[in-house]
């Protein structure tokens, strides 16, 4: 569903991403771990065609994201680290707008409210201007937008930052559910615990290189942490 083939990105002399090969099948949750600047966000931006690859290919549902940019985006939903919405519109209107842009089926208002509730947005906030929302509330609208898109792939850039532990836990449940529905998920995160809990695979990145990639079933939480720190200290 999500595929990187020798995908790389350099800015002048600086290499943000060394050639990366990665394949995420439907139902897989791949967690990218690594320090800031390790290349996690670059990888996600390459999949979204927000930055152009220096070499290699990124594919979503078999579509090259640079050549079939618009078409590929129909198959992917995205939640950035900080979801920013149109401040003058309500949460519901924002969801309505982005869903309309996504070009998916037309939902009824009740269905749209359902998505917001599933994402954990308090009901009384639905009709308030997003300008008064907290970061966590905006994040939940972002989750609702991603769910409503019903895309085959999901790109997440530290989506749980700003969520309280309860919301964070609910989010994990949500990811598990989506993975069960056959969605391929690529998530950049700092949260080793969350990665172990809801990821099927984890990759550790360092200075633009994928230094380790393993299945979460092969490793315990403590071992994952040890492995991670070991790579960071090298």
């Amino acid at each position: 569903m999500l595929e990187a083939i020798a995908l790389s990105k350099t800015y002048g002399a600086h290499t943000a991403l060394h050639p990366l090969d990665l394949k995420i099948e439907p139902g897989e949750v791949y967690c990218l771990l690594g320090a800031n600047g390790a290349g996690k966000t670059t990888t996600i931006n390459l999949f979204l065609n927000f930055v152009e690859p220096t070499a290699g290919q990124a594919k979503i549902a078999g579509l090259d994201v640079t050549k079939q940019s618009i078409e590929s985006k129909k198959h992917v939903a995205y939640i950035p680290e900080t979801v920013m919405l149109y401040r003058n519109l309500t949460g519901l209107e924002n969801l309505e707008y982005f869903t309309a842009l996504a070009g998916v089926e037309k939902y009824s208002e009740a269905q749209l409210r359902g998505f917001l509730r599933d994402a954990g947005l308090p009901q009384q906030a639905e009709d308030k201007r997003v300008g008064v929302y907290s970061k966590g509330m905006r994040q939940k609208v972002g989750i609702a937008i991603a769910m409503a898109k019903k895309a085959g792939a999901l790109l997440l850039d530290e989506p749980t930052s700003g969520l309280d532990p309860k919301a964070s836990n609910e989010f994990s449940e949500l990811l598990k559910r989506m993975s069960g529905d056959g969605v391929a998920i690529l998530m950049a995160t700092h949260d080793l615990f969350r990665a172990k809990e809801c990821g099927t695979r984890v990759g550790i990145m360092k200075q633009g290189r994928m230094v380790a990639s393993l299945s979460t079933s092969e490793i315990g939480h403590a071992d994952l942490e040890r492995l991670y720190l070991q790579h960071m200290h090298d």
Partner: peptide, 14 residues
């Protein structure tokens, strides 16, 4: 500047 562009352009719109 508001950060809305990323979410907008992650949709199939040029």
């Amino acid at each position: 500047e508001q950060g809305t562009l990323a979410l907008t352009l992650s949709q199939p719109v040029s």
